[in-house]
Design a protein around this nucleic acid. Structure first.
Lengths: 139, 139
DNA sequence: TTACTTGCAAAAGTTTTGCGTAACA
DNA sequence: TGTTACGCAAAACTTTTGCAAGTAA
């Protein structure tokens, strides 16, 4: 039996041969618990609430390492700062509510198919893509 | 008759009551001539090639002003730096060739319609959106 | 043990801002 | 002629890095 804070991300780290140090465990736990898209400062804030000694540089380094191995995805919205999310098993897109800043994930197979078709017409293979739709609630 | 460096962007600036100073004219000229998506440092490099006295801060300030008035659009790709393009009259999306970094604009009415439909299903009105498709040439 | 990771502090890179001067309308 | 914008320099903010010490495997 594993610790109660064990996450799927941790198992994937082990599989990749990444050391599961104390700081990394905390960061992975925070990532797994996040259902939003925090920037590094916000991540660090949450990490420090659990383990006050963990340094901001460690959070940056860990995010880079995780992103390099594809365990998380680095986003970039209009505000300029890097944001992250646990790498989705199934791809999705984003609605960004411009009145609240809230990010909502959605997926449309129809859009996915359409993109494939268009890229092929241009002679490309799709490596990845990002669709962010900035919205406001209908009045 | 207007100066030979006159651009549509300049006319739109006048309409908005923005002062057409020397530095702004040069920046608008560079923007109009750019068919890529330069970051601010690259913009400044091109601006300085025309008028060496123009300061980096002026480029930043001008880009912010233009973006506030909707004359240009601020993009943000994976590299983190802000990039810009002259605000398109007709919306378009981007292919980013991951082997060369080249950005290709395209447009699909079918995708536009589909997005409208999906947003409406979620109870949203679309304010704007961004679709970046990272591709590699088909072998 | 031994290579990898951390904390700390300093550096590097990007963007903004305060202020006195210049110049557009 | 009165704002507004500019150049310059300094500050603010985000991210990376060098190094000595600590730690997982």
């Amino acid at each position: 039996m594993t610790k109660n804070s064990e996450t799927g991300l941790m198992q994937r780290c082990r599989d990749l041969g990444l050391r599961l140090t104390g700081p990394r465990r905390v960061i992975l736990q925070v990532l797994a618990a996040a259902d939003d898209h925090p920037d590094v400062e916000e991540l660090h804030r949450r990490v420090v609430a659990i383990e006050p000694r963990i340094n901001l540089a460690t959070v940056y380094r860990t995010m880079n390492t995780l992103a390099e191995h594809g365990l998380i995805e680095r986003l970039s919205f209009a505000d300029g700062r890097a944001r992250y999310e646990a790498a989705p098993q199934t791809h999705h897109d984003h609605f960004i509510n411009i009145e609240t800043g809230a990010v909502i994930e959605f997926r449309s197979d129809e859009i996915e198919r359409l993109q494939q078709k268009i890229a092929r017409d241009f002679g490309f293979d799709i490596v990845s893509h990002r669709l962010d739709i900035y919205v406001r609630p209908r009045r």
